[in-house]
Amino acid sequence: MVTVEDTRVIYVKNVNFYYGGFRALTDITMDFEQNRVTALIGPSGCGKSTLLRLLNRMNDLIDGTRVEGEVIFEGNNIYDAKVDPVDIRRRIGMVFQKPNPFPKSIYNNITYGPRLAGLNNRIDLEALVERSLRQAVLWDEVKDILNQSAMMLSGGQQQRLCIARALAMKPDVLLMDEPTSALDPISTAKIEELIQDLKKLYTIIIVTHNMQQAARISDMTGFFYIGKLIEFNATEKIFTKPDHKQTEDYITGRFG
């Protein structure tokens, strides 16, 4: 085992997930370690996005879904009846496939979450905006136009703004659902670089369709196929000497 028990921030134990009668995930057990980037790869419909959205209870929003098993975050099962999903989502941030800034100013995009969580001091908010934008490497580009609409930014800038917006909540874990699939190569490179910096502070779990991306940025890679975790190992091993033939077939482009 590569995993060291103490360093895992969040882990999934024997999870099954159903959309109505359809089983989308079968018996998934996975550890996500602190300050690591874990990539989830696999062909479309394999369940990797479903697993990602399971980690901050975004699947709750879909009618008729059901979870079996446990998702343990800081020692507690987030699917326990006592747990408020709103609280979980404050601690586990998410960045989506398509940049989705609010039709508000850049400043208000960042402060929206923290304000509703109770932060109201203007000086603190301003500091938070700068810190978050710097972390997302967007500060230099937008520091003079903070009051302009976020909709004016380019796609790549919008996505970095969405990352900054998630970071403003000071989460422990950052979930990224194909964050670069709607972006051009230059923006993609910027975000990949950013992810490398962010892992010093956060635990990152990223779903990607881009195998090179997974190989470039992740420490651990999980390969999914038809709702099952086929192989979960150090990225280097997955991409050089995978244990399973299915994994090898997928990463070498024989199917997918």
């Binding site: 929003l61 989502r89 398509k98 989705n100 929206y112 979450g113 909540m169």
Partner: peptide, 17 residues
């Protein structure tokens, strides 16, 4: 757009808010 709702909820903002 549904993405606005998702973005807000994913920030730990309640449904009513």
């Amino acid at each position: 757009p549904q993405t606005f709702r998702e973005a807000s909820l994913a920030l730990g903002v309640s449904k009513w808010q």
